[in-house]
Amino acid sequence: MLIRIFALLNAAMPVAVVLCALMIVHHAVAQDAVDSWRAGPIAPLPATPPSMPNTDPRKVRLGEKMFHDLRLSGDNTISCASCHNLSSGGADGMKKPVGIGGAHGTVNTPTVFNSTYNFTQFWDGRAESLEEQASGPVHNPVEMGSNWKQVLSKLKRDKNIKEAFLTLYPDGITSDNIVDAIATFERTLVTVDAPFDRYLKGDKTAISPQAANGYELFQSYGCASCHQGVSVGGNMYQTMGAMGDYFGDRGDVKDSDLGRYQVTQREADRYVFKVPSLRVVARTAPYFHDGTAQTLEDAVRYMAKYQLGRDIPNQDINAIVAFLKSLAGKYLRFDPQ
């Protein structure tokens, strides 16, 4: 019986391969006209992240609950959502966040939206994955100021949470399971169907001509050398002040300005940060790791100066800003039918 199946498969294989090849070619050919963006630096965000099909909706719900759960903080006043507020672009709109007991955070809150597309997490890339990242704030004394032991003891007293965890995880409430749930939820926080994506896919009326011009400028100026990929950034490191002495000019260099040096202790990594994703940049002012750029225009100007060594005229800045604004898509709460 098995032998028969194998024989059948063997016979079917070349056929399958040919068919697949044909399909791919056809697809490619068919897409050719539409996928002109493949030649470009920016690609449209996929409608669903790759992990989506295997996601258990119950985990997402639980992760959402955990994301909004105040008990993850020492004094039960702060949840993930306190700083990564979903209704304000996934960030807190502040230069630097305020943590437990009014503690001052060290770096500007990065957006949680589309964070699944970041190749590492945190400005300095010290967390490889969303799961790794989730532990950080919990233990950070200036953020949630707690620890897993504390959090677990609080959560274990909650019968509903306990039950919910037990249904999904055989070992119930553990720190690993909590971050797993949170990360599962975070992976659903994608903004899709941005006007610019539609534009990329062929709808030339999706964005204003100014924005389209802005995109061209974005590329020609060289912004797109670093802010590229589906997430318009988030996939490489770069020195802050590659073409200018940003920190020298700004002054008051703190540890948080050292960037990747804090992780690798290499000179070469001093002032090196993860290039952030610009997808929801329209909603996450202020900008940069230190939150110094109040507006998008400011951000563009500074970037041009310190990263490109260029002086961009206002007209171009506006165009680029218009382009940047067209990058934001819609967040659709994960609700599988």
Partner: peptide, 20 residues
């Protein structure tokens, strides 16, 4: 991989300077 990251960063600069 570290080197790759470094290359990525420096290549971006090379590109930009060369195009500028």
């Amino acid at each position: 991989i570290d080197i790759v990251e470094s290359i990525k960063s420096h290549t971006a600069i090379v590109r930009n300077t060369l195009s500028y």
